[in-house]
């Protein structure tokens, strides 16, 4: 009844920013987190996975946070590129990649993001 995913241990250098609660993000939806260098998009899938990526489509800079979220991907609202939320890679025939950020959920439903880790590619 009461299972919570274990929180991962992180390297000491990494700084985690608490950005809100899981319930702040609609299922199959996204919210923006504003940064001085531009927004990042934080997604929540149907199955409550949370991903954070730059809110900028590699194609023409479309705001990915406004797209339709299906399974582990989002379709950009401008020209329908489909971006894999976990890797940041464009799917299908399109070529491109968007920066991803590490996210974690804690037992109380708080969501945090790390701005130092992550990259265009996840190992």
């Amino acid at each position: 009844m009461n299972e919570l995913s274990p929180t991962s241990t992180e390297p000491k250098a990494q700084h985690w920013f608490t950005i809100g609660r899981l319930s702040d993000i609609p299922r199959r939806g996204a919210r923006q987190v504003l940064l001085p260098r531009g927004p990042i998009a934080v997604f929540r899938t149907q199955t409550d996975e949370v991903y954070a990526i730059d809110d900028k489509c590699p194609h023409k800079g479309g705001p990915l946070s406004q797209g339709i979220v299906h399974d582990g991907a989002v379709t950009c609202p401008l020209h329908n590129w489909v971006i894999d939320l976990q890797t940041g890679d464009a799917m299908g025939a399109d070529q491109g990649c968007v920066r991803t950020y590490e996210v974690r959920k804690d037992a109380d439903g708080l969501v945090s993001v790390s701005l130092s880790g992550g990259s265009g590619k996840t190992e």
Partner: peptide, 17 residues
Amino acid sequence: AHEFAPMNRIAMREAAE
């Protein structure tokens, strides 16, 4: 309402850490 406001903001100083 959630649709029209960002979830959060991270200020310059913090983000630069």
